[in-house]
């Protein structure tokens, strides 16, 4: 029991994430300049998991998140809505049209709003397919985002944080350092100041989102970035924010930018 600490205290020193024996996904990086030395190195959450969990993500047949990717692929090719169109009708082969898309999300759209991948999907559904919007964090939406994410696998996180994105990014940063709830804990309390440590049974990572949507073994399903944020804020005994809220899009942008230098994992497995 006393081992809970030292035995698993650090990110794995030298594990490499190589998917299907060929695609090397970068899981350690020099911190982006904007982090101003807050952490000495950037680590994917993958490095904080057990050998067994890590190995699941190296093999697509073992990776349970790939079932969601397959379901997303089916949906990509399925006609839905009054306009009688599928995603493929307009975007063709996702391997080409969606390559690199997840790596730059969330991003500012043509109207100047900050949108997550989910918003782009739902906008196409409602405006272009005349179908219903999918519920945030629903299986169908997470599957589609997973299918889109897999097309950016191994590509560097490339969110824009300056120019028109900057005010959103600044607000996300404020939120990251806000000590929410009756426990008065910020994201930084756990993921910047104490990564590598244990909070009860949980081994704290840097809370990166380059692997999202992520298959959580504990929940037995894919979860979205905003679902994770919601849970982490709830655990401070706070009134959390809604998934899909403006606050969470801004937080998503800021947290994504803390992972600049890492590669997009294109659907991770975590415990």
């Amino acid at each position: 029991v006393a081992l809970s600490g030292a035995a698993s205290a650090d990110p794995h020193p030298d594990a490499e994430l190589i998917i299907e024996g060929e695609l090397n996904v970068k899981v350690r990086a020099e911190p982006a300049a904007h982090l101003d030395g807050a952490v000495p190195e950037i680590y994917s959450g993958w490095l904080f998991r057990t050998d067994e969990t890590r190995s699941l993500q190296m093999d697509d047949f073992e990776n349970p998140a790939m079932l969601g990717v397959e379901a997303g692929q089916d949906a990509w090719n399925t006609v839905e809505g009054a306009a009688g169109k599928s995603c493929a009708d307009c975007h063709g082969d996702a391997a080409e049209s969606m390559k690199g898309v997840r790596a730059v999300m969330p991003k500012v759209n043509d109207n100047g709003d900050l949108w997550s991948t989910e918003d782009y999907v739902n906008n196409c559904r409602t405006e272009r397919m005349e179908a219903d919007a999918l519920k945030w964090n629903s299986g169908d939406l997470n599957n589609m985002v997973a299918y889109i994410s897999v097309q950016s696998r191994g590509m560097p996180v490339a969110v824009q944080i300056d120019g028109e994105a900057e005010p959103f990014w600044e607000r996300g940063k404020d939120m990251y350092y806000t000590r929410f709830g009756q426990l008065e804990l910020s994201c930084a309390s756990c993921h910047e100041e104490n990564y590598g440590m244990n909070i009860r049974a949980d081994h704290l990572s840097q809370g990166q989102i380059n692997g999202f949507p992520t298959y959580r073994l504990k929940q037995g399903k894919l979860i979205s970035t905003h679902n994770r944020f919601r849970g982490c804020i709830r655990d401070t005994r706070a009134e959390s924010f809604a998934m899909g809220s403006q606050e969470f899009r801004e937080l998503e942008l800021y947290v994504a930018s803390r992972g600049l230098g890492l590669d997009t994992e294109g659907v991770a497995v975590r415990n």
């Binding site: 000590r179 929410f180 009756q182 008065e184 804990l185 919601r230 709830r234 706070a238 009134e239």
Partner: peptide, 26 residues
């Protein structure tokens, strides 16, 4: 400190205090 304050019952001292772990407002 990141250690919580265990003896304070004033919600005004907190940012978005919740109703325990429900994610809802206090």
């Amino acid at each position: 400190s990141i250690m919580p304050v265990f003896y304070n019952d004033n919600p005004d001292d907190y940012i978005r205090p919740g109703d325990a772990y429900t994610a809802k407002a206090y």
